[in-house]
Computed example of a mutant assay.
Amino acid sequence: MTLEHGADLRSTNRYGGTALIPASERGLLSIVEILLEAGVDPNHVNNLGWTALHEAIVLGDGSEKYVRVVRALIGGGADVTIPDGDGVLPRDLASQRGYDAIVAEIDR
Rank of each mutant, 00 (worst) to 15 (best):
R71Y: 05
Y66V: 01
I31D: 06
V58Y: 15
L48W: 14
V69R: 10
R68S: 11
H44S: 09
A38G: 06
V67A: 06
L48M: 15
L29T: 03
V58E: 10
N47R: 12
L48K: 15
V67H: 09
L59T: 10
V69N: 12
L35V: 01
V32P: 15
L53V: 13
G62C: 09
I31M: 02
V70G: 14
E55C: 13
V45A: 03
L53M: 13
W50G: 14
A38D: 06
E64R: 08
G49V: 01
I34A: 15
V69Y: 12
H54L: 04
G49M: 08
R68L: 10
L35R: 00
E55G: 09
R71E: 14
A38L: 01
A52Y: 02
E64N: 06
S30A: 13
A52M: 04
I34M: 15
A52L: 02
L29M: 01
R68V: 00
V45S: 00
A38C: 06
V67F: 05
G60L: 06
V32E: 11
L59E: 11
G62Q: 07
T51C: 08
A56K: 01
G62Y: 07
S30P: 07
G60N: 12
S63F: 08
L36H: 00
E33G: 07
V32M: 13
N46C: 02
A52I: 00
L53G: 13
N46V: 09
V58D: 09
D41S: 12
V67G: 06
S63D: 13
A52W: 05
S63Q: 12
W50T: 13
L36D: 02
G49Q: 02
V70N: 13
I34W: 09
L53I: 12
R68C: 07
L53H: 12
V69L: 14
A52G: 04
V45N: 00
L48C: 12
A38M: 04
V58P: 09
S30C: 11
E33F: 04
V40R: 02
S30Q: 10
N43S: 05
N46E: 11
W50Y: 15
A52P: 13
V70I: 08
H54P: 06
L48I: 11
L28W: 05
E37M: 07
V70P: 06
L53T: 08
E64V: 05
L29C: 01
L35P: 03
I57P: 03
R68W: 06
S30E: 11
E64P: 15
V32N: 10
N43G: 02
E64A: 10
L29F: 03
D61I: 11
G60D: 11
V69P: 15
E64L: 08
L48N: 13
L59S: 14
I57R: 01
N47A: 14
L36F: 04
A56S: 09
L29K: 03
V58I: 12
T51E: 04
L29D: 02
D61P: 07
I34H: 12
R68D: 08
L28G: 01
L29E: 00
V40W: 02
H54I: 04
L35T: 00
E33Y: 04
E33M: 11
D61N: 10
K65L: 02
N46L: 00
L48T: 08
T51M: 03
G49L: 03
V58G: 12
S63K: 15
S63G: 10
L35C: 01
N43A: 02
K65G: 01
